[in-house]
Amino acid sequence: PQLADQKTLARQIYEAYLKNFNMNKAKARTILTGKTSNPPFVVHDMETLQLAEQTLVAKMVGSAGALKDREAEVRIFHCCQCTSVETVTELTEFAKSVPGFSSLDLNDQVTLLKYGVYEALFAMLASSMNKDGLLVAYGSGFITREFLKSLRRPFSDMMEPKFQFAMKFNALELDDSDLALFVAAIICCGDRPGLVNVSHIEVMQESIVRVLQLHLLANHPDDTFLFPKLLQKLADLRQLVTEHAQLVQEIKKTEDTSLHPLLQEIYRDMY
């Protein structure tokens, strides 16, 4: 009976993942490996960026027109924020579908999302990346790593650490069923600062982590160390988010750009 419960939990979390996220690894890999009839439009310089903005981004971000006279770095930063807000919204819906999450203390739900969404976001972002670039605009565009590196500082420092993480993370060859449990484990984490009912969350976390361990053993029988490797990735993601939050604070201080209110809430008093 216990095994049946664990399988049910794994299935519920995987179904919530497929239902709530617009992009997933299977979709992204199909596009990145050229197995679609519509290959993504490649953004690799200022000219192709402008072309993409006139077509792909205009569809995605209605307010992009207000930024048309701003420099490319600011426009790209705005697009990153829009994608982040959308993913945070998806992650919130996903979290609510994880069994037990919605019955947690509401303050604790807020805390778990505040600290978990960026770690989850960067873990999932790896699915849309290869060594050369990143899928954008729902997979209709591909922005090259070199172009992102060529932007002026501090904007050029934004994505390169995510690519470096993604290359190592993608080497683990997780699929969406693994990622669904990994993302749930990131969110249901008992050691976030300020949690009220830690024991309640730890019970949830233990069952998700146990299911993740069993799932990895079944899904990757040749990689017996995959589970401890993934636990290490949790620590790497925390570091990645800390550095990202510092960079965003620097951009906010030194650049004339606005930060979306939802992202402001998340970054405020974070670390």
């Binding site: 959308e86 919204t89 807020v110």
Partner: peptide, 21 residues
């Protein structure tokens, strides 16, 4: 905490209200 995270709180309580991009 809920007061400092009004949008997150709203997202948690009401899935139908969109977040202005």
């Amino acid at each position: 905490l809920k007061e400092k995270h009004k949008i997150l709180h709203r997202l948690l309580q009401n899935s139908t209200s969109p977040v202005e991009l």
